[in-house]
Design a binder for these strands. Structure first.
Length: 777
DNA sequence: CAGTGAGCGAGCTTCCGCTTGACTT
């Protein structure tokens, strides 16, 4: 058997390739692909009564990895456990030792948080043993999360709905979204008149130009605004003061996972999962450093390389090499910040997405090592002769661009009217005339809904979740139906504008769209019900501070100050009591609200959560035999805010529009949204139509389009059975039957298939046995 | 996929944090 002198195990395969290059022939480097074991899923995987004894197993998808590692370990003299330098990494090392049964004497634990030759050789010089306190802190974290998740979720199945879930991270994420939505619901918008004047000035070349200045006060009523404009008619305007100030702008730190997700969302429109997918590709091809990190630290090598690049391309005065302190308090800093591997590559080959994300990472990292920008900010105050109020204009001139030459971080604020302009040369005491002064009614805006990226930002601020889980958490809460990203249409709103020109005030009623939103995280009715339920019975777990408190205790475990059993026991004993109390004492959650009486029938109208979603019901409480009528709530209608009028409106569906080809055409809303029904066939209604307003002609159009689309997708039909068809789908041709869909076996040509073959394929996929029909959701 | 919403009951669901491919309706 061929012997291996040194076996180095790291977490990621891409890393292992790089490191092998640094270490030479005596070393073989391999990877374990993250955790190799986890708590068993059945029976919670924890024996609570036996001091929280965990039952670890190797999941099936990791069996091959473990088998391979075992072989290598047996052949090796020394095993260098080089997993990440954080709690999880330490635990992975311990699991490797335990599962692969490696002798302590053969183990050397090494850590490095940058993949440079120097750092790795240095780590080889300073091996240590596994830090068991740190491992126990991880174990406590893992067990606590399992206990919380696997005791809370079943309560929800019983009290709210099956398949729901709750957990330390996801439930807080949902809470943030629910609370923001309620803030928006309860927000009362107020309007005030904003006054902006266009003053006539001369620019450097003596050419006439306009200087826009805003009055320091807004007027809450139109009357006040109007009388102010009246005053302006006869006022004399004077440049009162001219203040110039030097200001400096600093670049932002290089990317962490969270800031990369935020910027890629704002600048490139990527979802957080897309950002991670593209970043993974760049990492695997060696173009960037590791993309799951909470650190803003750059290696010495990187700082030097950035410096060289900046001096060469922009000059000495643009270089400002420095390190950024990581802001996030929960950071474990096992890796570097996200940066290009080679700064000399300002761009790379690859897909369009890879190119643009790489460009962003390169610019951000380079900018982070560049000088501050130097600006001159000018504030001009314009006073009035018959009034104490002042107009103010602000301007900004860049004296030295510094890092702005390559990159400027964007913000979440939607207010675009802060652009600074260049202030023309003015003198204090100079008299000014205006060409126009406008008073525009402006409404206050409710707080903005979370985007995926702004939610990640918030979670990171709260210390909840880790770089590797931000994207999965967001997809989990969407999968569970707590959150969706539907488009909100908004409504029209009028506002007034008064304009003063040539001593004449004109008035105009304008309109704008308000409340429209897209791509934002919207909570579902279920999210609101579950959130209220959990906050009621488990306020401690839903507390924004909960994770922070847990982390503090885990730190004490890691420092060997407290025993992990004790820490878990102090948490679990009261928690489990809460669980039992809730199971015994809580009512089933239905979210029922009685809205009032239906004016046409005199029966009761209520809303509640039903099996397939929120419904409105017309019921007769006095007569049990009177069959209730149901209508599903529309997308974005909320159980807690829907009004009686809106509920009555729902019962206007289904609407019968008339006849087409001698069959009735009707419209309604089903599980998959609004549809047109004709001749017992359903056609989804495109978004531009409203089922309450669509006309017969438009509905016929929907039917005809639907037929064309279906014909395009249909490859083959059979005379023997109209329900069986061969269709063309996303993954190629498939058979559609009343039993379900089946993929056509590989290598089979659609043209060759006869009805009997198709029947056989269907029969194989959906056997007509008494039980165990394979169903997939 | 399927345009319902009754009610029964078996058997299932679920957490967070490390990592990538295998696989999909």
């Amino acid at each position: 058997m061929e012997k291996i002198k040194n076996l180095v195990i790291v977490e990621s395969p891409a890393k292992s390739k790089t490191i092998e290059g640094f270490l030479g022939k005596e070393y073989k480097v391999t990877s374990c692909y993250g955790h190799i074991r986890d708590l068993e899923k059945k029976n919670s995987g924890i024996d609570v009564k036996d001091k929280f004894k965990p039952n670890y197993i190797v999941p099936s998808e990791k069996k091959a990895v473990v088998r391979e590692l075992k072989k290598l370990v047996e052949k090796s003299e020394t095993i260098w456990l080089a997993t990440d330098e954080d709690r999880e990494g330490e635990a992975i090392s311990w699991h490797l030792k335990d599962e692969l049964k490696i002798d302590d004497k053969k183990i050397k634990r090494i850590v490095f948080n940058e993949i440079t030759k120097k750092a790795i050789l240095n780590s080889i010089q300073n091996p240590r043993q596994i830090d068991i306190d740190l491992v126990e802190a991880q174990q406590a974290r893992r067990i606590l999360d399992r206990l919380v998740g696997f005791e809370l979720s079943p309560i929800l199945w019983r009290k709210v709905k099956p398949n729901l879930s709750a957990g330390r991270v996801q439930s807080v994420a949902v809470r943030l979204i629910v609370e923001r939505e309620r803030e928006i619901q309860n927000f009362t918008s107020e309007s005030a008149f904003r006054i902006v004047g266009d003053f006539i000035v001369k620019d450097k070349k003596g050419k006439k130009t306009l200087l826009q200045a805003e009055l320091g006060k807004r007027f809450s009523t139109e009357k006040e605004a109007r009388s102010f404009l009246e005053l302006c008619k006869n006022a004399e305007f004077t440049v009162d003061s001219l203040e110039k100030k030097l200001a400096y702008k600093s670049s932002a730190a290089p990317f962490t996972t969270s800031t990369l997700q935020q910027e890629a969302s704002r600048k490139l429109g990527f979802s957080v999962s897309k950002t991670m997918l593209v970043a993974q590709k760049l990492y695997e091809s060696g173009k960037i450093t590791y993309m799951r990190t909470d650190s803003t630290i750059l290696s010495e090598f990187a700082i030097q390389a950035a410096k060289d690049n900046i001096i060469e391309n922009f000059g000495n005065e643009y270089s400002n090499p420095h390190q950024y302190v990581t802001k996030s308090s929960s950071a474990q800093e096992a890796h570097e910040a996200i940066r290009p591997t080679y700064f000399e590559n300002a761009s790379v080959d690859g897909t369009k997405d890879e190119k643009s994300l790489y460009g962003l990472i390169w610019k951000r990292a380079i900018a982070s090592q560049m000088s501050d920008a130097k600006l001159e900010r000018t504030t001009v105050k314009i006073s009035m002769s018959n009034n104490d109020l002042n107009f103010t204009a602000k301007g900004e001139v860049i004296l030295f661009d510094g890092f702005l030459k390559v990159y400027l971080e964007s913000t979440d604020e939607e207010n675009g009217d802060n652009e600074s302009e260049i202030i023309p040369p003015l003198k204090s005491g100079e008299k000014l005339n205006f060409s126009e002064i406008a008073a525009t009614e402006k409404y206050t805006r409710p707080p903005a809904r979370y985007t995926e990226a702004s939610l990640v930002k918030k979670l990171e601020e709260l210390g909840i979740g880790r770089p590797s889980t931000y994207a999965p958490t967001i997809s989990t809460i969407q999968k569970r139906g707590y959150v969706s990203k539907d488009e909100l249409k908004g409504r029209e709103r009028n506002y007034k504008e008064l304009t003063l020109v040539d001593k004449k005030i004109t008035e105009e009623l304008k309109s704008e769209i308000t409340g429209a939103d897209r791509g934002k995280l919207l909570p579902s009715n279920i999210a609101m019900l579950v959130n209220d339920f959990l906050i009621n019975y488990f306020p401690n777990i839903l507390d924004y501070q909960f994770t922070a408190n847990v982390e503090e205790e885990l730190d004490e475990v890691a420092e060997g100050k407290i025993d992990w059993h004790k820490m878990l026991d102090e948490f679990y004993t009261p928690f489990h009591k809460q669980v039992e109390h809730t199971l015994d004492n809580s009512e089933r959650v239905s979210g029922e609200r009685i809205l009032g009486t239906d004016p046409t029938t005199g029966k009761q109208i209520s809303v509640r959560m039903a099996r397939y979603g929120a419904v409105a019901a017309i019921t007769n409480p006095d007569d049990e035999n009177d069959k209730p009528k149901y209508a599903g709530l529309r997308l974005n209608q909320k159980l807690e805010t829907i009004t009686l009028e809106e509920a009555i409106e729902l019962f206007k569906l289904p609407r019968t529009l008339g006849e087409f080809e001698n069959s009735e055409v009707s419209v309604s809303i089903g599980r998959f949204g609004p549809y047109v029904k004709h001749f017992s066939k359903f056609y989804s209604m495109p978004k531009e139509f409203d089922p309450y307003e669509i006309t017969l002609e438009e509905a016929i159009g929907v039917i005809e389009n639907g037929r064309i689309k279906e014909a395009e997708k249909t490859l083959k039909i059979f005379e023997q059975d109209a329900a069986v068809k061969i269709m063309n789908g996303r993954w190629g041709p498939y058979i559609k039957s009343s039993k379900g869909m089946v993929r056509i076996p590989k290598g089979t040509k659609v043209d060759d298939l006869v009805f009997e073959d198709v029947q056989k394929i269907i029969e194989e996929a959906y056997p007509t046995k008494k039980k165990s029909t394979k169903k997939k959701k």
